[in-house]
Every structure is written in C-alpha cells, then in structure tokens.
Design a binder for these strands. Sequence first.
DNA 1: TGACTTAACTTGCATTTCACAAGTGACCGT
DNA 2: ACGGTCACTTGTGAAATGCAAGTTAAGTCA
Lengths: 139, 139
Amino acid sequence: MPLQHRRSDCPISYCLDLVGDRWTMLVIRDMVMFGSKRFSEFQSSGEGIATNVLSDRLQCLAEGGILECSVDRDDGRKRIYRLTEKGIDLVPILIDLAQWGGRHDPNTAVPIEFRKRIENDREGVIAELRAQLESLGHG
Amino acid sequence: MPLQHRRSDCPISYCLDLVGDRWTMLVIRDMVMFGSKRFSEFQSSGEGIATNVLSDRLQCLAEGGILECSVDRDDGRKRIYRLTEKGIDLVPILIDLAQWGGRHDPNTAVPIEFRKRIENDREGVIAELRAQLESLGHG
DNA sequence: TGACTTAACTTGCATTTCACAAGTGACCGT
DNA sequence: ACGGTCACTTGTGAAATGCAAGTTAAGTCA
C-alpha cells in the first residue's frame, strides 16, 4: 500500500489509506499483543508476510507517523520499531477487530476468558495495553 | 480482495481476510452512516470506487455473511443490500475508525460535536446505529 | 585479521489485483 | 417499440503481491 493518496476527507477513509490493507494491522497487532519490535519478529509471526511487503509497510507506517524506527544501541544491525501515540491510539480498533473475530469466526483461537474480559472490561484491557506500550516508549 | 484464504487462526487476521482492504469498510460505512442500500449509492459516495471492484466486494461480503442481497420487488433491475447481524457487529469498529481519524487527521471532516458524542457516549452511538440498521432489516 | 553468521533489506520476476473506460443485458416508463 | 437506467462484465495497462535469491552492514568466533 505505498502511501495512498487522499481519497476524500472522510476520517474512515483517512484511516484506511494508512492501515487499510491485509498486512498493516497484523504488524500493529504484533506490536500491541505480542510486544514485537523487530523486523524478524514481524516476519515470523505466523501469517508469513513477504520481506519486501513488510519492509514497505514499516516504511509507510513510519511515514504516516504511526511508528518510529531506531537503531539498536547494542547491535547496529538491528532496528527497533516502536508505536507512537498515534499508533497506540489504534489499540481500540485492534481490540474491536479481535472481539469481532472472536465472536464470528467459528474456528477462533481466542480463549473464552479473553473474550469475556474484552466484553466486560473493554476500557480496562485497552488501558492496560496502552500502559504497557507507553512504558516501552521510555525504555 | 477475492475471498482470501485463511492465513492463520488469529481473529484479527480472520477479520482482515474479510474486510481488510481499502474499499470494503467504506461500503460498510455507506450502509451504516448513510443508509446506503444500492449499487449506485455506493458508487457515488465520494471516493470513486470502480464498478468491477464494487461488484467484487459486494459479492465477497455476501459470501462472507456480512451482507445479504435481494431483488427490489418494485423494480427488478435494482438490488437491495442489507447488513446481516454479523455485518451490524462491525459498527463498533467503524466508530473507532472514525474516532481515530477524527483525532489524528489534521483535515478531518468530522464535526466536533460528533467527535464529542463518540468520546462521551460511544455505547449510545453504537446502540443507536444498530437499532436503525436492525429496523431496516424487518422493513 | 579474516571467515562465517545474522539482521534487515533490495532485486527480479511471474502472478494477481487495480483503475479506468467501454460494453452488455435485464428491466422500466412512455 | 425505444431510449434510459441499473447492476454488472469485459478488456487493458499499471500497480501490488508472493516467492526466491542476492546484497549490505554489523556482529561473532578462530
């Protein structure tokens, strides 16, 4: 999705221009749910994203202000990808996606406890994830 | 997005396999926010979706159980597209997308009142839209 | 120091999807 | 019967995707 041109002034369209493809939200998911920070971690997270596509998505997300990339101080080969505030604000969307999938996917892998937690305390789950991600930011 | 094969058992991935592209959620938006029901209404809703893509998306959404298509009784040329329960359950995601766009898009078209309503009474907004859509179903 | 490995890309290429324009066929009003 | 409308379908070039292989810079070990 090489940085889409603006299609309209609709906020939903704006959002989809940035994260509306089959891969981008999976990268965000890896960061939010599994704490992924590295290229290799995104690469090996199950769905099998191609390296060129991953590279492209990370760059677009960085250009879109959703994440930031820095070089690992202890190992110059490695990059560290971290969500910005704008990126962290995507957490509610991610939770809703998970909730919808959990409800409507007959073969869902979401444990029933987690589904119930989201159902009963959505705000709490969001706050928790948000706090985790923000603490990483100042690490 | 010709009906993606299942990439993993992740609920988010499941969701993205169905609605994770640049157009599908805009079709849903038209149905939820503007009450669109017709091919021509989706076509003329601002972003300029191509007819072949729209046709494909509607078919995929129908196959995915997110909407249903029926022939207009008064005019055999026209189709009526209506969201199923599964489709209506996407409303929270849509609201979150709108909220995120409204917050992070510097040129957002979302009126500040609506943004505040979502911020203060998300559940209320969702319930209202849901009720509207459900009443259409038994029309 | 030099060979080897690892991390993060980049390149090439065949396949798929997309955008755009044009065409088709069922159906309607007159 | 005829022109117009609605919902598609087809054709075509451009762009994105998936896959395999290659590249570059940096770290590791002998």
